[in-house]
Design a protein around this nucleic acid. Structure first.
Lengths: 152, 152
DNA sequence: CAAGATTGAACAATCAATCTTC
DNA sequence: GAAGATTGATTGTTCAATCTTG
């Protein structure tokens, strides 16, 4: 039995994601950070002061998982948490100096992977790939909403 | 700080994979099978008699995880394991009648997601997307081999 | 009551290590 | 020794539930 188009598409997407994450995992190992931790540091460098819930959504993990990841990072002094000035039950997370320093080393370790991937495509091809992946997202989300309806 | 092309690409791939898996997870929940279990049943329907190690590689999990998944499936009577006729320490896994029946129901549950995804692209676009994803794989793998060298 | 944070129990996945077969 | 299967310990993730704030 041959694979259907979607099976092949879904399997390929999963495979790429898996290999990409594995490669990053190996590159980050010497720095004693795992991929979720790196993702958090990277997200905070792009937008500081995010809440745990916001980080969870951005990094595609549950709020509980993010809480655990943040505790680890805070314990290592890589991030700091402070109450939001208005909504005091929201904890804003920021990189510390050590966090920024470690992130710099981590980005250096991961840079090779990113470059290799970017170099595999012309700008036009990159644009095409991004557009198509966005469309995958839209398609799956529409389906997800349909499924959510019938559950209540 | 804006996202680099690769960050955007990697993040998007992860997001698609995540939403696709989530959608399947929801669709399969009523049947009491999770996505890894479904993947195993599907792989066995495409090629029967695979070993646990082969299934692990195909489903992108560790052999230990696959061993655990297979124990669960065997306990539910969905697969059966028998020693390879020549290499007796290799256990060949096959679908049982119940396994085939459950897989049929599972594929029905997941069909909508696959159709929605396939319908989002023309045949030419699908071909382009598949080609580009294959190239991602090649690029990341080449990088992975470089990294493996320096470790020994 | 909605949104965020966090705890503890249950589950899943991995690493390390062992055992077997060829 | 290489490849496969499996166990036990550890870690990571999730679910369920609770608490807090606006």
């Amino acid at each position: 039995m041959p694979l259907s188009v979607e099976q092949r598409l879904g399997h390929l997407i999963k495979k790429v994601e898996h290999e990409l994450t594995s490669a990053k995992h190996s590159a980050l190992r010497p720095l004693k950070v795992n991929v979720p931790q790196y993702n958090v540091l990277l997200a905070l460098s792009q937008e500081s002061g995010l809440s745990g819930a916001a980080l969870a959504r951005r990094c595609m993990v549950t709020p509980q998982t993010m809480s655990s990841v943040l505790s680890t990072l805070e314990g290592r002094g890589l991030v700091a948490r402070a109450p939001h000035p208005v909504h005091s039950h929201i904890l804003e997370v920021e990189l510390t100096a050590s966090g920024r320093a470690l992130l710099a080393r981590a980005e250096e370790a991961v840079a090779g992977i990113e470059e290799q991937l970017a170099a595999a495509f012309t700008p036009e091809e990159t644009k095409s790939l991004l557009t198509h992946l966005e469309r995958c997202l839209t398609a799956v989300r529409q389906k997800g909403e349909q499924g959510a309806k019938s559950q209540g």
